[in-house]
Structures are given as structure tokens and as C-alpha cells.
Write a protein that binds this DNA or RNA. Sequence first.
DNA 1: AGACTCATGTAATTCGTTACATGATTCC
DNA 2: GGAATCATGTAACGAATTACATGAGTCT
Lengths: 228, 228
Amino acid sequence: MSLKHALLGFINYGPMTGYELKKFFDTSVAHFWNAELSQIYPTLKHMEAEGLVEMSVDVQEDRPNRKVYAITDAGRSELTDWLAQPAEPEQLREPLLIKVFFGAALPKRELIQVLEQEVARHQDYQANLEHGLTMIGRFAEAIGLRRDALYWGLTIDAGLRVCRAELEWTQAAIHAIKGIDDSTFNLDPIDWQNMNVRTATDILDRLKATMPGLSATTNAPKVKEPVG
Amino acid sequence: MSLKHALLGFINYGPMTGYELKKFFDTSVAHFWNAELSQIYPTLKHMEAEGLVEMSVDVQEDRPNRKVYAITDAGRSELTDWLAQPAEPEQLREPLLIKVFFGAALPKRELIQVLEQEVARHQDYQANLEHGLTMIGRFAEAIGLRRDALYWGLTIDAGLRVCRAELEWTQAAIHAIKGIDDSTFNLDPIDWQNMNVRTATDILDRLKATMPGLSATTNAPKVKEPVG
DNA sequence: AGACTCATGTAATTCGTTACATGATTCC
DNA sequence: GGAATCATGTAACGAATTACATGAGTCT
């Protein structure tokens, strides 16, 4: 769980309520992190129990009371320790790529339709990010934290570069798929009965035989660490 | 849950066991999808109950029996229906970017160290993907599915482009951070007491006032759909 | 009148990982 | 002799989403 650390990062700017934290998430890191209130509230409670933050009730009339969380010394060192550690690799699970991977099971035009929707989504998203990048300067002026603004800008730049790369890939993929001469391939479901390969085990065996270095493509192997 | 659909995609090539499915995952889509056996087995059972696959026991001596799953007509149409639907946007949760976002809380060189580790990781990963791309041709020849190989290659190309974009960003970010003239910024923890902004609510209010279009940067607004 | 903001939460459920359990066989 | 392969799972835990619940005030 590193929602904890993201929350700490914000609370480190100053005392806040869960409700406010949600807003900061949505207005600043929405492009690479999402958090629901129903997850934020219990996490804050848990962090309080751990001694990373301190809660004080801000009594209000006409409105529900606010629970304001402030960072403690323990929280600050937890935050900086975590920041200095190497980043956990984000886990990737990309439904779009799975669809393309199995794209041969689908008529060409249907797959292309899926990809074209993706182009539209990415163009919107790119426009949003570009807008955000021009905003961030003003943002920083409003708050008076220019050093922080540089770092914020970098995260938007990261989003932009990846978004552009994905957009270019999607367009190239559409082009490549359109370029396939269907006549040289069969569009029907694969006829396993008449193929020279019949079982999954056969395929895996052939892969092993023809591609000795295959495992290099897979995830990093687990290396035993010497104990003691 | 779309592990189900990824499994269906593989079973659509031919009947397989859970154990074999795991191997296919690891040797082909490992760069954008991971699946554990402990998740695959129950999911297969569930799919059988849904009628998407049929199980038959392959009795063996000396080894545990194999449970071979074959796709049904219902399974095939479930798969193609899913493939033709627009892709669910992958949700992003990138610990590295959170670290950069809060980078101002850390001494410059420590943040740069984190980024440099990221460069190394990406270079390894890029090499793996490039290797995979050259392999895929042979892969396809071994199985005799050239049309499928095109799609498989596209997914690796996607990984490569994104990986390169991230790598370039990381290097640019290191450069940018190194270029900061520290003397113009304070490196100490932010002194909120002496700043003209004190509370989170103040910041949010200022943001609203100075940046009316801010919401455009946030996640797609939920659009009410007219009910029927 | 209806929707949105403020402000808190709980409960149910899904999705996924890690750890645990078993046991013969085969490769180095 | 030790590790890896083959082949199945269960149990416990963690992370996160969705739905449910409340209720006054404000904006259109």
C-alpha cells in the first residue's frame, strides 16, 4: 500500500482533511493516480494509529465537523525514507494490448474500430495534459512554490511523452493492420485439426527447441539471495 | 475481471491446462500482463461453471493428472464480443511519478539516484523487448501462424515505444533537476508559518480563483447518460 | 425542484499476491 | 544431493472499487 505515502506527501504541505486530500488528488495527480474517499478515510485512520499523522477535530456549525490531519515527525521521516527508496515497478495490465494480441480472432475492421476509439481517447487526453502543462506555471505562482512546480511539471511531461508514444503506436498499428493483404491469410477460425501443430504442449516444446533464449523476454527471474 | 478473457484468448488456440496457460502468459504477454497459478486455477473453475470452457481429465501415471480446458461456442462468442468492445482504460498508479511529484521534499541527489536506477531498469527492459521483437518472427514460423505473429509483434512494439519514451523522459528529468540552481530555492522543509498561504483550503480556493479551467486537467467528468 | 457541495463513513465484493501443501520425476 | 519441472490446489491477506447511508446548505 503506498496510498499512504501519497497521502503523506500532500499532508506534508500542510494539515488537511480527507475530503481536501481527495480534491488535491483529482486536481494534481489525477493523470497517474486515483484515490476514492472510501479508501482515503480508513487509510488516514490507520496512519493515525501508526503515529504518522495527528488528527484534530475542527468543529463547525451548519456543516459536518472536519477532521484535520497533520503530519508528525515520524510521518515526515517515513515519507522521506520512502521517497529515497527505488520505485516499485508499476504493474502493467493493459486490456488494449490483450485485444491486439488476440486480434486475429476478430475481423480486421472490428479491431481497427477498437484502435480508432483509442486514438480519440488519447487525443483528448493529450490535449488535457498539454493544457495542464501551461497551467502549472500559474499554479505555482498562485501558491508561491516554484521549486515544487518544476517537479509537478515533470510528472505532466512524463504523462505527455507516454501518451504521445501510445498515440503514435496506435496510429502505426492501424496502418499496419490495414496494410495486411487478407488474401494471404485465412480469416476463419484457426483450423487446428489440419495443422501440423495440435496441442499446447507441442507449441511449448517447439518454442523451447527453436528459441533457447526465450526466457530473456520474460519477467526478471527470481534470484536467490544468500542467507546470513 | 478480464483475466477470464485473456485465458479465453489462449484457450481459443487449442485445449490447454492451467499450468500451460501460465507458461504462455510468461513467454508471450509477460511484458503487459502477469497471472499467478493460484489465480488461474480458480478462474478456470469459474469459467467452467459459466459454460465458457469444458474440462476433461487427462489421466497420467507417474505424474499428477492434467485438467485440460477446451473452449465452447459460448466461450468463443464471449471472447469475440469482448475483443470488439472498446478497451477499458488501464488504470495508472505510478509510484515513480509520485516520488517525483513530491521530489522537493528530498535532497536533489537522492531523487536523482532514484531516477538513475529507473534508467538502468528501463535499459534492461528495452533490451529484452528488442530481443523479443527479433524472436517473434521465428516464433511464428515455429507455430505456422504468420497473421497472429503480426499482432504479437505489434504488442511488443507498443511496449518498446512506451519504454523508450519513459527512458527519454527519465534522462531529461535527471538533466532538468541537475540544472536547477539550488541557491534560488530553499532546500529546507517548507516553512508554512511564514508563507502567505497557510491552509489547504486556502490553496484550493486560490486554485479555483486563478484557474477556472482547471477541471479540464482532471479525469474525464462523468457525463449523465439520458435514461431511456 | 433538482442537482451539486460539504463531510463523514461502512459494507460488500472483486481482484490479486504471497504463503502454504503435496509428491513423484528428472536434470545437473 | 539439490534444484527444477510437472501439476494441482487452498488459505490468508491486502488493495481497491462500488454501493449504500446521512443530512444540511447552496446554486440554477
